[in-house]
Amino acid sequence: MLMAAADPTARLEALVRNHQRGVWRYLRWLGAGAAEADDLTQETFLEVWRRPFEQYDDRATAAYLRQVARNRFLMWIRARGRKAEVNLDAADEVFGEFARDDGGDARIGALADCLRRVQGKTRQAVDLFYADGHSRAETARLMGMNEEGVKTLLRRVKDSLRECVEQKLNRT
């Protein structure tokens, strides 16, 4: 199916609706700030809008969009003398595995479900570190723990969350 079909605006709208979150998450992961990810996501969709392409399936489309986004991101960081936060050679494979066909929506949804089960001290550490953005040292101070203890706690919760998410995703 060609992008430039009968109703191009509707096609662009559908493309953006289905893939914008995946592209945005990918750019954030590569190292773009939130505002930069907004801009680069827009540039990515505008580029594919100007250069119609064949859409075989969602996974292939997502991979193509990530390729365009990656190029945009590279131009952006080169202009600023910055470096990517991740290994770009393996980036698409790692993110593709994470995002599957939906840009990561299902994984984030499963993760939110799994997080609801996290309670007590572990939950407090998760909130302070991830939701509030405290450093590990600050989280430890606020919780009256030492930093190594918080590190261990967070590692364990990530392990259990990983397991919980995989179970949920494999169930579907």
């Binding site: 605006t9 662009l12 709208e13 953006v16 609706r17 914008q20 979150r21 945005w24 998450r25 954030r28 992961w29 939130a34 990810a37 907004d38 996501t41 827009q42 969709f45 505008l46 994470f98 990561g104 994984r107 984030i108 993760l111 939110a112 997080l115 998760v126 909130d127 991830y130 939701a131 953005g133 990530k158 969350l161």
Partner: peptide
């Protein structure tokens, strides 16, 4: 990043209107 987003921090915005 996924945990942060699942907790409501820095979710992807809806850019449809802007891009269109």
């Amino acid at each position: 990043l996924a945990i942060e987003e699942a907790l409501g921090r820095n979710p992807p915005p809806d850019l449809r209107a802007r891009i269109l």
